[in-house]
Amino acid sequence: MLDGTAVIRSLSPLPLLLALAACAQPDRPHWPVVGDAASGRVWTERMGCGSCHIIPGMENATGLVGPPLIHFSRRTMVAGYLPNTPPNLVRWIKEPQAVAPGNAMPNAGLSEGQARDIAAYLYTLD
């Protein structure tokens, strides 16, 4: 006869082990999701970001005016000015001219929601 509680007890380390495995994985994005990455991808395409930036996985995004948009889930700084947190990345995307006046990346009049979606998309890139 199978004892239900014994089965559960034997399985109980499983969540713990899974959690440990997740922690051990170094490339895991350590930011909570701030927006909708799928719409962020559409906005990134539409805003012409790829004519100034290389963006992995995006066709025709081969620009070399600014740095490649890679490794955002593990990056320390945004544009070398702001610590890489979701609010700071959103701020840069919305108004780069306010953060670094006179740099080549224009303020594009994005809404907070659009900028959040783009940030969520950037955090999915490696």
Partner: peptide, 12 residues
């Protein structure tokens, strides 16, 4: 931005 394809920046 609502053109498809969207016109690229032509800086480079």
């Amino acid at each position: 931005r609502q053109l498809e394809p969207s016109p690229p920046f032509v800086i480079d």
